[in-house]
Design a protein around this nucleic acid. Structure first.
Lengths: 344, 344
DNA sequence: GTTAATGTGGGAAACGATTTCCCATCACGA
DNA sequence: TCGTGATGGGAAATCGTTTCCCACATTAAC
């Protein structure tokens, strides 16, 4: 008591039963095994009396599986990730499991490191969020790591990473961006500037491609559009926009491939004295909840971020063990708001 | 190999040494024990060759301590918490440890549950973030749980929870709010409306008290100010503001005790057709990074959220074991921006 | 009235590491 | 040559649970 730990042995002793019996009782009846009503009562009551708390490490060791579930994101302060994380967290706790959060800081090898740690802890499952750079070497390493994780009985799901061999919840970036482009063209825009993010990120690339393909369909020459690459962050958007404006552009509408960059773009334009949407329209992608109160409100493509997190978690926490990877397609809804308007 | 696991025993066998020696090598020499250079080499190389990954559960069991560090927040999607979380995460990973994230959803008993789970996992430390309701019963239970956590060798730090018996990183809410009030009075405001949040939350209460005390000092009657209580969320701020305006107020400035509520307030005012700051000034508290691009930009009190997270983590991950709780006071910097201006 | 089937409980071997003893071996000085 | 340390390495206990397997009843079946 003084030193802190109450073991199952002590509970068993106090209840006058064997270790095995005590374990059986506390595990909520191991399958078909029955334990007498009276003994069951004796065990539970002395467990409660002693304040017994099972040693999770010992359980994991014996069962060769823990109650840990991993979640890997690039940056938890980024509202995109924290929204998805909220969904994942919710489901994980609902299942009575414990969430382990790993952040990569967008460093290439970090995911593998985190996955190894989860493997070492015998984690039940892991949810990988966010498109990664398509760097061949680290992708290969990650794939290997995922394979090992699976072999150890762990389950893997991804959000927005269609490349990886695992269950995936993925927004239809291409269609969403294309639809957005159509709507903007409908508004009268003909010349666009694109804040494209890092060009080796699948998400960024898909959104750009979708946008471009809609332009092509409308008979507009994608090649004539200005494209700026930069960080997927608010500051990245700010910097890219500054660069863009310094270079000069004829665009009447700026499409940032995510809301966070669009926010940076609007800030940059304000600092440069460019009216939004008066002189330049701005559109984003994601519909980040925290950014919904921006003025002007962002025209964007709404993604159910939290729900995507929940779905991904369900994919790995659910009963059924599928053998081939499942893909949940998420539809994005175009929202035309104040930040875009027909060009003058 | 096929079934997935490589144990230390296999590594030892491959290297032709005993389990003990292999362990000593891989633990980086247990204190004074030396292992021959040649053997050391043989062990590490066959560990690498076999792809040995220590079983964290087994290690925890043997050492009676794991590499897990807990972080408890109310809601990870709330940018206040995700900012602090980013700081904590950073330090935890820097120390080569693994972060466990628990969220309470603002439910009273949840923290204790999470703490018990961490105890069960023999977590090294835990950081508790966010003021809790001053509900006597659950506070007592939490205090007990913290005490047990400590007895098991775990360390505890809090952010913004000055009540609890543990190392704490706490903003000086009173002083910050008071300073803000002074600056607003300086601008010419005399009549304020307060969005106070839940009135049993220490943070909300302190900020309100600080604000009020500055008013009193300035010879203004705090009692004459309008006060609205409500959720600490964006929607809570929105709802409270609607109520406030419906009731009517003579205030020229609205102080929301956090930025998230202030954002809701501005949204509500916009929907009601009230100009900010033209007809009504609005001020917040925290300086949430994601909300810095709001228009009008928020007058607020800047808190170094991420740094606070880092400091809390350091408190509990650092070398020295202090016996009496330390308190790190965080100063908030008043930022007068666009959302407030002298009343007309 | 034996035998089989069933239901209950305990004993003891895992699980995979760490760590404490204890035993070789070797070198060195007396 | 014989202690006497020092040094490197192995055997085994230990951590707290789970679980396989066996023993003993009690009852059912033939």
């Amino acid at each position: 008591m003084s030193s802190g730990y109450v073991t199952l042995g002590q509970v068993a002793e106090a209840a006058g039963v064997s270790l095995a019996t005590a374990s059986r009782v506390l595990n909520g009846s191991t399958s078909t095994r029955q334990v007498g009503e009276e003994l069951r009562e004796r065990v539970t009551s002395s467990a409660r009396a002693l304040g017994y708390l099972p040693n999770a490490s010992a359980q994991s060791l014996a069962r060769n599986s823990s109650s840990l579930v991993g979640l890997v994101v690039h940056d938890i302060a980024d509202p995109y990730f924290s929204s998805v994380a909220a969904g994942v967290t919710q489901m994980v706790e609902e299942h009575g499991l414990v969430l382990v959060l790993g952040t990569t800081d967008r460093a290439p090898g970090k995911e593998s490191t985190i996955l190894a740690a989860l493997r070492s802890h015998r984690a039940k499952a892991v949810v990988l969020v966010g498109s990664r750079s398509t760097d061949a070497e680290s992708t290969e390493q990650l794939t290997r790591e995922i394979e090992m994780f699976r072999q150890q009985g762990g389950r893997v799901a991804c959000v927005s990473q269609p490349v990886l061999p695992a269950d995936t919840v993925c927004p239809d970036n291409h269609a969403g961006a294309a639809e957005l482009a159509r709507r903007l063209i409908e508004q009268g825009h003909r010349k666009f500037a694109l804040l494209a993010g890092p060009n080796n990120l699948s998400t960024a690339r898909e959104r750009m491609d979708g946008f471009h393909s809609a332009l092509a369909t409308a008979g507009l020459e994608p090649d004539h559009q200005d494209v700026m690459h930069g960080d997927f962050t608010r500051d990245g958007g700010y910097a890219s926009t500054e660069r863009l404006m310094k270079l000069g552009t004829e665009a009447t509408c700026l499409f940032a491939v995510n809301d966070v960059m669009a926010t940076g773009a609007i800030a940059a334009l304000r600092d440069l004295g460019v009216q939004v949407p008066g002189q330049l329209s701005v559109a984003g992608f994601d519909d980040i909840p925290t950014l919904r109160d921006l003025t002007p409100s962002l025209t964007t493509v709404r993604l159910p971020l939290e729900q995507m997190g929940r779905q991904a978690a369900e994919l790995v926490l659910g009963e059924e063990e599928h053998d081939e990877p499942r893909l949940i397609d998420v539809h994005g809804e175009v929202l035309i708001r104040e930040s875009t308007r027909p060009p003058t």
